[in-house]
Design a protein around this nucleic acid. Structure first.
Length: 884
DNA sequence: CTTATCACG
DNA sequence: ACGTACGTGATAAGG
């Protein structure tokens, strides 16, 4: 078997990968999608080809590189987008790290290098594979040289392969004749003129018959279409020039050492580190853990499993200024505690023997208690998750790595110790949880060997302790110190209290509600099947799309890449005409209620008869909190049938619910932040904002606004908060874009300062790369720099929305902290149990109703001092349905 | 493990 | 021309 060499057209493949994949960025906002795509294609081809040699050719001057497909279509030339340009050095660095030979040469394009190397290698008796996205290279195909052209269609990459034979099949000319073909037809993307009046069809015919431009010219009189004959006669010199331009130089003086191109182990340590830096998590798995991964200089950790040693440790910890703590626990089961006294003295205390779960949690509580420490600050990666295992509500000073890192960059999906070490400890690389434990659960890891667990616990405690200083510095640097200390840190305890109290749910009522739904669901199912003429899975959009749009022939064609869209807004337009659609919509609604709410909630009722949701503080990009397992922030309310579910959420005996929500907080925030006098005035006079907007926008007297006008104006107000676009508004109101644009224009005429304010936000976002809330919370917006219109537009809307949504989030967080503090300090039995973005639910002891109402009103209204009042609506009830 | 759908603010 | 409203989370299908 002969040897094989793989030659890659570097820029071309990078380009393919860039346009074929969504624009990936790592958590630092570095664009990495093209590099990732390149590596995936590379690995795939290597597996298929198994070559002995590999080399990648690059043009020396990247900026001359173009996206040919795009240009061929547009007929214009655009510079390489910045997102792609910055990835060129990255892929070269990656290839070099993998020991892959890169070839460039002054004065020659990558094409020429590839052509030359292909020729030389073939002469040596090798098989050659050229990987490129550029069809020009087809001229290089022979019996031994195969050109592989990857094509990305809807995210799937297929590869077209060409030996000489396949070129002939597809283009009716031999590979070298491709050059002659181009000489006649030209190639706008490559600036090859060709000759006028000759396109692909004619050119192919001529070359297939006469073999070359020169021979065709000799037989000029025989050339068939007259137009072509005359053109060739007149522009023969142009044809020859084009031919020269199209021909790839197969004899360039490139120096090439086959030894250096020998394919070795790609999975080197350097490549591993780079993959890690770029966050190619999927690729990391390819690396052989022994060869590639750097020797983890595991820090020296100590285990302590005897009672007196443990006591000593905690005593010592309590006397310090700072101590790093981690709790290794999962689903109520505790495995051990990590304790970092200083950077060199990190301990793991396993649950073992006398050191029981209870004992350890008790020690942790003592450490956290306010009374126990004078000047001690407990540093942890995630304080709230630790508090879950600790009693009491009177805690001392803490530092929370996760919350701090979240404020500094709220766009990350997680805040693990290895990421934080990398980012805030000078690129320090620690072994990640996955590297230590794999995909094992804690329990499995514990049973197998506690080594990984020990390391993880210690690294967590260590990182929490050591990264405190740089994180605090960064918070001060970015003017977020106050948001951190005055809003987020106290919020940890507020949320902890809410999670621990939970909310009482009537399980039996939930069950009967579900059964009631089931009766109707079964009816609808039969009804739908009957109308469809067959039984099918109504829950499958795929099956339903086929039934509706193919079998029953409803109009309203394709929408998604996988088939027909059967989303509610599409179906609703069809509902008046087709009864089956109405039934499907009702079926959807009921099954949603059944599975997500009736069944879903029942599953998470704990033994105390209450649901304990988790409120996540480090998820959203804007500063809101989110709720999981279950999500209690999306319990139905808009439709009556769904709203009934709220009747199962009840206060304990002797308690009632007090529900308080901010009235139009986001619009009020907008009024304040923009300083628009008209809007401020309107709120001061307690006017109906939507009606007022309607009267201004539609130029009608205030008291003659029709309900439709008011509804439209309300949508405009919402649109403003979301970062208005005429398309979005038109979609929402089912009007034309022109009309929507009209509404917006008149809105901005009415409230000129709002226009200025929003423009300023976008400008600030573009200039600084982030926008801020009233309290200084930041939201980075990397999309604003994108060359992609859609992405950039998204960035602009985000720039307009985030400060408003985020400021509202800040305000209610402040209110929560204040309410929590007042309830505690005034020794009340009432407690905060839920937050739903602009709403707080308090399980109120009946004798405290008056006092709690006053606290709620006072603290919610007083949470921020705006130029308009913060109005609060409050209701009382024996369940959530009544109280809302 | 991603996609479509739908619940909330 | 581009083809979207902002922010979330849970469920069921179907690779």
């Amino acid at each position: 078997m002969s040897e094989k060499i793989l030659l890659i057209d570097g820029h071309s493949i990078l380009n393919r990968a860039f346009y074929g994949l969504p624009d990936l960025t790592n958590s630092e906002g570095k664009h990495t999608g093209a590099v990732y795509g390149f590596l995936n294609i590379l690995f795939r081809i290597l597996e298929e080809e198994k070559p002995q040699y590999l080399t990648v050719a690059f043009d020396l001057h990247a900026p001359t590189f173009r996206h040919k497909m795009y240009e061929a279509y547009k007929g214009t030339r655009k510079p390489m987008p910045e997102e792609l340009r910055e990835q060129v050095p990255l892929i070269q660095e990656m290839l070099t790290a993998m020991g892959v030979k890169i070839v460039t040469m002054e004065g020659y394009e990558a094409d020429d290098i590839l052509g030359t190397l292909a020729g030389r290698s073939e002469k040596k008796g090798m098989d050659v594979t050229i990987l490129s996205g550029d069809r020009d290279l087809l001229q290089l195909a022979t019996e031994k040289v195969m050109i592989r052209l990857p094509r990305t269609v809807r995210g799937k990459t297929t590869i077209e392969d060409f030996h000489a034979e396949q070129v002939l099949e597809k283009y009716q000319v031999t590979p070298p004749q491709i050059v002659d073909l181009k000489a006649l037809m030209g190639d706008s993307a490559d600036n090859i003129p060709g000759i006028p009046g000759v396109g692909e069809k004619t050119a192919t015919k001529i070359i297939a018959e006469y073999g070359s431009v020169e021979n065709a010219h000799e037989h000029l009189e025989e050339i068939k279409p007259n137009r072509a004959k005359e053109s060739l006669r007149e522009h023969y010199d142009l044809a020859q020039l084009s031919k020269a331009l199209a021909a790839i130089n197969t004899d360039s003086p490139v120096e090439f050492d086959y030894e250096q191109a020998k394919l070795g182990n790609l999975y080197t340590q350097g490549a591993f580190l780079l993959c890690k830096r770029l966050e190619f998590k999927n690729l990391l798995g390819r690396f052989d853990s022994e060869n590639a991964q750097p020797q983890q200089q595991l820090q020296e950790f100590f285990s302590c499993s005897d009672l007196s040693g443990c006591e000593t440790l905690f005593d010592k910890a309590a006397k310090q200024e700072y101590v790093g703590v981690s709790l290794v626990a999962e689903q109520g089961q505790v495995f051990g505690v990590g304790l970092a006294l200083d950077s060199e003295e990190v301990y793991f205390i396993p649950v073992e023997g006398l050191l029981t779960e209870n004992y350890l949690c008790g020690k942790l509580q003592q450490l956290l208690q306010k009374s126990s420490h004078g000047a001690l600050t407990i540093c942890s990666m995630d304080v709230k998750s630790m508090l879950k295992y600790v009693d009491g509500e009177d805690f001392g000073e803490i530092f929370d790595t996760g919350v701090a890192a979240y404020l500094l960059n709220p766009l990350k999906s997680s805040y693990t110790y290895d990421d934080i070490a990398k980012e805030y400890l000078n690129g320090r690389l620690l072994p990640s949880r996955e590297e230590l434990l794999g995909k094992m659960t804690l329990e499995k890891a514990w049973q197998q060997s506690e080594d990984g667990l020990v390391n993880m616990a210690c690294y967590m405690a260590y990182t929490a302790l050591v990264s405190r200083e740089p994180l605090c510095e960064a918070l001060k640097e970015t003017d977020m110190w106050r948001v951190y200390t005055e809003i987020e840190l106290p919020l940890i305890f507020t949320l902890n209290s809410m999670e621990k109290w939970g909310i009482k749910v009537k399980g039996e009522e939930l069950k009967s509600y579900g059964e009631r739904l089931n009766i109707r669901i079964a009816e609808l199912e039969q009804l739908i099947w009957k109308q469809a003429g067959e039984e099918f899975n109504i829950n499958s959009p795929k099956q339903m799309g086929i039934i509706l749009f193919e079998k029953l022939g409803l109009k309203g064609g394709k929408k998604t890449k996988t088939g027909y869209s059967t989303a509610a807004d599409i179906l609703e337009k069809l509902a008046p005409e087709y009864p089956i659609v109405k039934d499907i919509l009702e079926y959807r609604q009921l099954t949603k209620l059944k599975s997500t709410y009736a069944d879903g909630l029942e599953k998470v009722i704990e033994r105390d008869g209450r649901i304990h949701s988790t409120f996540n503080q480090t998820i959203t990009a804007t500063g809101r909190i989110s709720s999981t397992e279950p999500n209690l922030q999306n319990i139905p309310v808009r439709m009556e049938l769904g709203r009934l579910i709220r009747k199962v959420f009840v206060p304990e005996d002797e308690y009632v619910f007090l529900d308080a929500d901010y009235s139009q907080i986001e619009l009020r925030v907008l009024a304040h932040m923009s300083g628009d006098e008209k809007l401020i005035q309107a709120y001061r006079e307690a006017q109906d904002i939507h009606r007022l907007t309607a009267s201004q926008v539609f130029h009608v007297p205030f008291d003659q606004v029709t309900p439709l006008q008011r509804r439209n104006a309300k949508a405009v107000n919402f649109g403003i908060v979301y970062g208005i676009s005429s398309f979005g508004l038109s979609q929402d109101l089912s009007i034309t874009r022109k009309e929507a644009a009209d509404y917006i224009e008149r809105y901005f005429e009415t409230y000129p300062k709002i226009k200025g304010f929003l423009d300023e936000l976008v400008e600030q976002g573009k200039k600084k790369g982030y926008v801020t809330t009233m309290f200084g919370r930041r939201r980075p917006i990397p999309e604003l720099k994108s060359s992609n219109f859609m992405q950039r537009s998204f960035g602009e809307r985000v720039a307009m929305n985030s400060p408003i949504q985020g400021t509202a989030a800040d305000i209610i967080k402040i209110a929560m902290n204040r309410v929590y503090k007042r309830l505690k300090e005034e020794g009340l039995r009432s407690r905060l149990v839920l937050q739903v973005h602009d709403e707080l639910l308090i399980e109120t002891y009946k004798e405290e109703i008056e006092q709690v109402s006053a606290i709620l009103e006072e603290e919610m209204k007083g949470a921020a001092n705006l130029s308009v009042e913060l109005e609060v609506d409050m209701h009382q009830g024996n369940n959530w349905y009544e109280a809302k």
